[in-house]
């Protein structure tokens, strides 16, 4: 029996892809399916040896109809994700434009500015949160000291314990720690824009704003699109910043989906219920990703750029 060249090519592709498939099955598909299975059981940390009983969709219905669901959803979608991602994209774009500007080049500050931008990104999130908690501390924190000494406030502000300041404090920490990635990525994209396009536009009488609006921004959109998608997924699922900054408090004021997963699994010991929240989060993000590509897909963006 002879194997046709086409078949041989297919076999080669199959064998080359097989290790990747095995890794994906072992490290992604199996845990995903196992988590899905757990979400339909009443397993707890105390029943890990015995295993849980099948309870159908009880965990899902309990979570989705719980009195806290609305607040947790708003905290996750609006405060943690929408606000922080928007601020990061806008600030990242501003940083990228600044780092790419002729002004910084003329001042010979480009290299030092780029290095400074990378410092927050190089700081581990745990360290960043601890450092910021100290900065924001009402008794010993330099921010309160400065505000008091400058006369802007008369009493120290407990930033992470006051309802009006706790979310801005968390968002500040996230933005400080993660905006550099956005800035550096957009800077790389900025540097791929042919300079003669702006020169031609300037000769045709285009203003700086018009050059930005009709040349720079369309070129950046594919990068912005991908960065936004990644940031949304990463932030929506993030646990570290909220938990280490406030422990989801005061009370439950900053409780988000990721901290709820942790509390239900490791304080209330309800692994099955917690798995159901995790599956819900994955479904929401999968739906978001599909819609995002459907309406703001990369192909479409690239078409716009030409």
């Amino acid at each position: 029996m002879t194997i046709s060249p086409k078949m041989r090519t297919r076999m080669t592709i199959f064998w080359m892809l097989l290790p990747t498939f095995l890794i994906l099955i072992g490290f992604y598909l199996f845990p995903t399916l196992y988590n899905l299975e757990l979400s339909f059981t009443d397993i707890t940390l105390l029943k890990l040896k015995k295993g849980g009983d099948f309870v159908g969709a009880t965990n899902y219905s309990e979570f989705l109809t719980s009195s806290t669901f609305r607040d947790i959803a708003i905290n996750t979608v609006f405060w943690l994700t929408a606000i922080s991602v928007t601020v990061r994209i806008v600030l990242g774009l501003l940083f990228a434009l600044l780092l790419n500007s002729k002004f910084l080049k003329s001042m010979r500050l480009t290299t030092i500015a780029r290095l400074m931008l990378l410092v927050p990104w190089a700081t581990p999130p745990v360290v960043a949160v601890i450092a910021w908690r100290w900065l924001l501390d009402p008794t010993y924190g330099p921010i309160n000291s400065w505000l008091l000494s400058s006369g802007l406030i008369s009493d120290p502000i407990a930033f992470t314990a006051t309802l009006s300041t706790v979310w801005p404090a968390i968002i500040t920490i996230i933005v400080w720690n993660t905006t550099p990635l956005i800035g550096v990525s957009l800077l790389a994209a900025l540097q791929t824009i042919p300079e003669d396009l702006n020169e031609a536009a300037a000769i045709d009488g285009a203003t700086r704003w018009q050059q930005f609006r009709f040349i720079t921004l369309p070129y950046l959109m594919p990068t912005i699109s991908v960065l936004t998608l990644m940031s949304v997924i990463w932030t929506f699922n993030n646990f570290v910043y909220v938990w280490l900054t406030t422990g989801a408090g005061p009370g439950t004021f900053t409780n988000v989906l990721a901290t709820e997963v942790y509390m239900k699994a490791f304080i209330d010991l309800r692994i099955g219920y917690s798995a159901a929240i995790g599956v819900t989060m994955a479904v929401v993000m999968a739906f978001f990703g599909a819609m995002y590509f459907r309406y703001f897909g990369l192909t479409d963006m690239q078409d716009k750029v030409g």
Binding site: L163, P250, G251, T252, F253
Partner: peptide, 12 residues
Amino acid sequence: ARAFGTALSGQS
């Protein structure tokens, strides 16, 4: 502790 937190902070 969470319930006391919501009350003491003025959340509810």
